[in-house]
Computed example of a mutant assay.
Amino acid sequence: MRVERLRWCLPIIILAVAYGGYSAISSSNAGGLATKPDDKPLTVKVSPLRSSDHNVVITSHGEVSPVEVTQLSAQVSGEVMSWHPSFVAGGIVKKGETLFSIESENYYAAVLQAEAALANAQAALIEENAKAEVAKRQAKKLPASQVTDLYLRKPQVLSAQAQVKFATASLKKAQRDLANCRVVAPYDALVVEREIGVGQYIAAGTRVATLNNLATAEIHIPIAGFDSVFLPEDYSQVIAKVIREGVVTVEREGNIERDLGVIDSATRMTSLVVKVNDPYALVSNEAPLKFGSYVEVQFVGKRLKHIYRLPQELVNNRQVWVVNENDELEPRIVNVLRAEKEFMLINEGLKDNDRLVLTVPEYPQQGTRVQLSVLDNPLKQ
């Protein structure tokens, strides 16, 4: 009987204990909510904005190449007798230095023969002029009908004059051939390739070497369409900075010389030509800039008015955050003209003295009240 009574009371006891625990938990939660402190406003760093004029810097890349490349050939035939010590691949030779010489005895003999032929022709001309003078004096005693050009020896004089001209031309050719036995550098040059050796017989017109002119180098740099609108009105002779990165960074100064005048059909880009004087620093103390180097080229383009130059991390989908006059977060849609390295150039959507948020909250909401930590100086433009 007692067991039966306990069986009926046990559920009631369990329910009472559960209700008591629930009441205790509820009262503790209510006390916790009542004592929870109010949320404090977010603190953000801001900087007042100042617009300024900005010179666009255009950057491109290209390869350093010689302005002039010469495929050197022999102008006379003969055996190679000697060559200059620097006339090797990679050697540098000065303008006028003898690169190599060809056996010249036959050409010297040809000069002597031409000189002799000229002397004979000149003697024959003197003789014909004398005979013509005698005929002219005798013609004064004859009737005019008997005096002809043949009698006055005019054809003979003309023939003798022609022989003198022919002999003179032959002498000049022989002298030129003799001079061409010494092949000289046409300019200060880098020897790219040499194809002859001592004792080798070469024919006239044989290619013997490849030379690069060291006076100037040029760099063809492509300009994308979005950069072309920022090119200066007159970019001829605009100074450009040429940079070659490496273990040792080399910086040289060049000039924009010309536009190639065509748009590449594959890339739709135009190209400018940058000229660098004395690339191998033969007459200066500059660092050499070798042909084939891949370089970066920077130059100043158009000057933009009233520009805000902001770090890229502050511009998200053409939007930045400012703090309005009520100390509330406010998004601004801006117009981004172009990106320059880690900065964005903005010309619309902001005004001077706007308080730009530098530390944007993770989930910013329009109208959120914030506390300000103002930088002493405006954001550097």
Rank of each mutant, 00 (worst) to 15 (best):
A217Y: 04
Q237K: 13
Q237W: 14
I219L: 04
F226S: 15
V262I: 11
I263E: 09
G261C: 01
G254E: 10
I219T: 01
T210Y: 09
A209G: 12
E251L: 09
E253D: 04
I221D: 00
A204E: 06
T249A: 13
G205S: 09
Q200Y: 08
E257C: 06
G225I: 07
T206W: 03
V229S: 10
R244L: 15
A266N: 11
V248P: 07
E233P: 14
G199E: 01
I223D: 03
Y201G: 04
I256G: 04
V242M: 00
I223H: 08
I263L: 09
L260A: 01
V198D: 13
V262G: 03
I256R: 00
I223R: 02
T206Q: 04
V238P: 12
A217F: 03
A204G: 06
S236Q: 15
G261Q: 02
H220L: 03
Q237Y: 15
I196Q: 03
I223W: 10
G225H: 11
V250H: 12
T216L: 13
E257Y: 10
D259L: 11
I263N: 05
I243F: 13
I219H: 02
S265F: 12
P222F: 00
K241E: 14
S265E: 15
A204S: 04
F226C: 08
R207H: 12
G254D: 08
D234A: 10
D264T: 00
N255L: 15
I256F: 09
V247R: 15
N255R: 15
D264W: 09
T206S: 09
A209H: 09
A215H: 14
E233H: 07
A266Y: 12
I263M: 12
I243G: 10
S236V: 11
I196G: 01
L231R: 06
I239W: 08
I219K: 03
E257F: 14
G254F: 02
R252T: 00
R207P: 15
V238W: 07
R258E: 05
Q200W: 01
E257D: 15
L231Y: 09
F226A: 07
Q200G: 06
V208C: 11
D234C: 07
T249C: 11
A240Y: 03
P222Y: 01
L214V: 01
E245H: 15
H220A: 02
Y201R: 10
A224R: 07
G205I: 09
R244Q: 14
E195I: 10
P222R: 01
A209W: 12
E251W: 06
G197M: 14
